[in-house]
């Protein structure tokens, strides 16, 4: 089976190359954020923290970070609530227009962001909501609610349907059963949904750029710096954004995985 080993070696080498391609820009961006050259290349220049100092002292960046933080947290709360109610509806009820209902919710991620951006810009101007922080929150909620719904729906499908029924039989009304049975069961999924929707919102730039007006978020600031010229500040902000998003994603993943593992151990 020497040929098979050769093939296997080739496939693993190929896979490694693909991963290098995918992670190269992320790694280089972090490396360049500590590099003193204005136009970084190989061999690397000296080590520096000046790009971090520049953004640290820039009031615009702080302002944008505050806006971004507020937007992501609000989006995470709204999208997770909407996603939960929708996932529960899909889990619990059958009704005639359900395919249409689900399509309405799951469609937004398939529409190009630039089109959503234009549509939202025009619509918010029409209904008098343009250029406000709340317009970014609304737009990002539309975008992220499907993710919240998908994560929580997966968790619900792991639930024993008789749990809720048992609560009703013991005299709990539907609200109480929801509060005491369903929500505790879905807690890990709710936490991951919260983190992931916040991370998506924290990175979104196309819609935010169109509708934010003067309330810029971090990605909009990056976009404006990049449009100007080569400025390694972008790498420093990018590393900060990367760190934030990664923290959120890893929390989400760990919460989901440990819970599932615990349940598996418990049953097995």
């Amino acid at each position: 089976m020497n040929r098979d080993r050769l093939l296997k070696g080739f496939l693993f080498g190929y896979l490694a190359l693909v991963f290098v391609f995918i992670f190269a820009p992320i790694l280089f961006s972090i490396i360049f954020s500590f590099n003193s050259d204005r136009f970084p290349t190989i061999p690397l220049g000296g080590f520096t923290l000046k790009w971090y100092e520049t953004i640290w002292q820039d009031p615009d960046v702080w302002e944008a970070a505050r806006t971004s933080l507020m937007v992501s947290i609000s989006v995470a709360i709204t999208a997770t609530c909407l996603g939960f109610a929708t996932a529960y509806t899909d889990y619990r009820y059958q009704f005639k227009l359900k395919p249409l209902y689900l399509a309405l919710i799951l469609l937004p991620p398939t529409i190009p962001l630039i089109i959503m951006a234009l549509a939202m810009l025009a619509w918010f101007a029409k209904i008098g909501l343009s250029g406000q922080v709340v317009s970014i929150i609304i737009a990002h909620t539309v975008l992220t609610a499907p993710f919240a719904m998908a994560i929580i729906r997966l968790r619900l499908s792991q639930m024993d349907a008789s749990l809720e029924a048992a609560a009703w039989n013991l005299g709990a009304d539907q609200w109480r059963a929801l509060r005491l049975v369903i929500i505790p069961f879905c807690k890990p999924a709710i936490i991951s949904s919260f983190c992931l929707t916040a991370a998506v919102s924290f990175d979104e730039f196309a819609i935010a750029w169109f509708i934010s007006g003067l309330n810029k978020t971090i990605p909009v600031v990056i976009l404006e710096i990049v449009t100007g010229n080569i400025d390694p500040q972008v790498n420093a902000i990018g590393s900060f954004v990367f760190l934030t998003s990664m923290t959120l994603v890893i929390i989400a993943q760990v919460v989901l995985m440990t819970k599932e593992k615990k349940e598996k151990d418990h049953h097995g």
């Binding site: 995918i22 990175d203 730039f205 990056i222 972008v234």
Partner: peptide, 18 residues
């Protein structure tokens, strides 16, 4: 999944330099 949650803009800027 990680790349979905890293700034696409920053990654493109990185490619620009590379």
């Amino acid at each position: 999944i990680i790349p979905f949650f890293t700034s696409y803009l920053v990654r493109i800027f990185s490619w620009y330099v590379i």
